[in-house]
Design a protein around this nucleic acid. Sequence first.
DNA 1: GCTATTCATCGTACATTTACGATGAACGAA
DNA 2: TTCGTTCATCGTAAATGTACGATGAATAGC
Lengths: 110, 110
Amino acid sequence: MQRTLSDISYSTDEIALAAIAKALSHPVRIKILRLLAGETCCFTGELTSLIPMAQSTISQHLKALLEAGLIQGEINPPKVKYCIHRENWAKAQALFGDFFTSEKSGGCNC
Amino acid sequence: MQRTLSDISYSTDEIALAAIAKALSHPVRIKILRLLAGETCCFTGELTSLIPMAQSTISQHLKALLEAGLIQGEINPPKVKYCIHRENWAKAQALFGDFFTSEKSGGCNC
DNA sequence: GCTATTCATCGTACATTTACGATGAACGAA
DNA sequence: TTCGTTCATCGTAAATGTACGATGAATAGC
């Protein structure tokens, strides 16, 4: 599959953007992030009651968001508190902001 | 796989964000968009010389970007000119902007 | 008409994603 | 110690994603 991927050189930003975009590429994860971002904090337990999905599935999505660095978890037995990872959130915001403003409104005649 | 996806209600924004994020979730597509956004315009032919991938693969990625609405193609035989879809680009920019600024810097003690 | 060029699409192989239920680990409370 | 609660991980099945080469469609030029 990635036979040629190693032959192509990507910038750090390109890889970082794609990784964050992949984390955001599922509506459930958008919803989870909105819940975490909108409220001051959340527990996974609340998420399982708010989202009609198997607990294991939600846990998988949380893991994906964790590995993307968008959220952080604080173990607070027997619960785990998940929050937005503010530092990386700001970085992601800057990456997307730069990306979308990089478009030249130049002389294209399309 | 999506046995329960229909049971969950997503807002229009959540679905739109996820769809755009999915289009951005591969470094090659980020690179293509950067090339199209940075220059005034591009032809697919230039892309195949700039990116060491099979022509069919690049065409597939362009199709994905087209279906996400991020680019538009103008048939100019025997070439096809691809440009950023400025209107949808602005919409995407607004969606991501709102999304990333929706985070409350409230009273979380993480 | 015939050929060359450009790009899309088809068919295919393999990897990844996504969902589920079942099980495991960690801890508090009885 | 023994339950009960909470969350992570495992195993698995089906769908999707990603790459390739081969083929097809459309057009310009001879």
